[in-house]
């Protein structure tokens, strides 16, 4: 991999990540409106952000959207999971940039930067996999 290709790959991955994500987000929103809700929630419930009292204090947020339901939700054209997938594609876009950089540094035998990219990846996955263990549930 030459220096030339490396930057071009990064650029394409960044753009691709954004485009795919936006398409998924828009599809998800369209599905929610067409199907009058998703996952047993009404459009109102999905849109609510819980500033009211009583019934309207309800709000549906990411903690009630388990990632294990992602695949199933998308197959069943569940708008909420389309949006979730779109958001996770977005989160994974920068992560894939670090992965590609790691590959490039390994190819160039740049040990120091291989180590630094691994630390960054460790931080990213620590936030994703380890930290949540200590949350509510």
């Amino acid at each position: 991999m030459s220096k030339y290709e490396f930057n071009d790959i990064l650029s394409v991955v960044l753009r691709l990540g954004v485009v795919i994500s936006i398409i998924l987000l828009a599809t998800g929103v369209a599905l929610i409106f067409m199907m009058h809700g998703a996952d047993g929630y009404s459009i109102d419930q999905i849109a609510s952000y819980g500033t009211g009292t009583g019934a309207s204090s309800f709000s549906l947020n990411s903690s009630s959207l388990p990632l294990t339901g992602l695949l199933n939700g998308v197959i069943h054209l569940n708008g909420l999971y389309f949006i979730s997938l779109g958001l996770w594609v977005l989160i994974f876009t920068p992560i894939s940039i670090v992965l590609i950089s790691l590959a490039e540094f390994a190819y160039l035998k740049n040990r120091l930067y291989v180590a630094l990219s691994i630390i960054v990846l460790f931080d990213l996955f620590f936030a994703m996999l380890v930290v949540p263990i200590y949350f509510h549930v």
């Binding site: 929103v29 549906l60 990411s62 903690s63 958001l87 989160i91 876009t93 920068p94 990213l124 936030a127």
Partner: peptide
């Protein structure tokens, strides 16, 4: 983007992301 991705996954599990607003 990389910094925000780190925070985002913690925000996700903590329930700080209202997907309807975030999509918009």
């Amino acid at each position: 983007g990389i910094t925000a991705a780190t925070g985002s996954s913690i925000y996700w599990y903590a329930g700080y992301i209202q997907v309807f607003i975030a999509a918009a």
